[in-house]
Design a protein around this nucleic acid. Structure first.
Lengths: 112, 112
DNA sequence: TTCTTATACATAATTTATTTATGTATAAGA
DNA sequence: TCTTATACATAAATAAATTATGTATAAGAA
């Protein structure tokens, strides 16, 4: 999704968190929201997004509802109960990742 | 290297930064240093480390010096000039990544 | 003395998340 | 009419890791 490959592995966290904040969203909406929030810094690609949504659904983290709006299909996703728990896990993992990287990279943030 | 797959893409940043701080290090030393600094949180595997070191060397970011210490081989790596520049780039990318993720995940840290 | 653990390198096979490249289809605007 | 935006989808290729091996020396425990 970007020149930096640090984003690899972050997509599910992003999707889950957005759905946690917005109750229900459809795929295209997610791409636009991410672009908007990051002021174009991060653009998630459809080739990554849709398979990821399908996976999250198959794992039971998301429920789907298909609607037709203005004659165009929209697949709305929302968190299940386990999906909400998984969101918390993923956010913890992100904070842990950031803390760990800071200890390695920034002497001011030493662990312990 | 860990249960969380957020670390994918961070290994080169970690290696470069450690070499930037410690002038010269050998592979095994890097694995131990990371384990120590993160109090066991992050263990980099040899299957990831050695190919990564070879790649950084082939890209001209690292110079190698092979020494024999206590009858055991050690390959000491150190940053080249372009390697030092690349370290700065990677660290900037990491800070940018963290800032971007915070805007997506933490409303307090909105961008702009 | 033998077995295990630590040190120190290496690589091949597999897995997984992504990018890149397509594809379909409708609506809006130039 | 042509392009851009909306909205989905998937297949092939790429890249970075994990997992599983392999070699070899040294130290320490049983």
């Amino acid at each position: 999704m970007k020149k930096s490959n640090l984003y690899k592995g972050s997509l599910t966290t992003i999707i889950l968190k957005l759905l946690n904040e917005n109750d229900k969203m459809y795929g295209y909406e997610i791409t636009q929201k991410v672009k908007e929030l990051t002021k174009g810094e991060l653009k998630i690609t459809e080739g990554a997004l849709y398979p990821s949504l399908h996976k999250l659904e198959s794992e039971g983290y998301l429920d789907v509802e298909v609607l037709k709006v203005d004659n165009r299909m929209r697949k709305y996703y929302k968190l299940t109960e386990t999906g909400t728990k998984e969101t918390a896990n993923k956010l913890n993992e992100l904070e842990q990742y950031i803390a760990t990287m800071r200890t390695l990279v920034n002497p001011k943030f030493r662990m312990g």
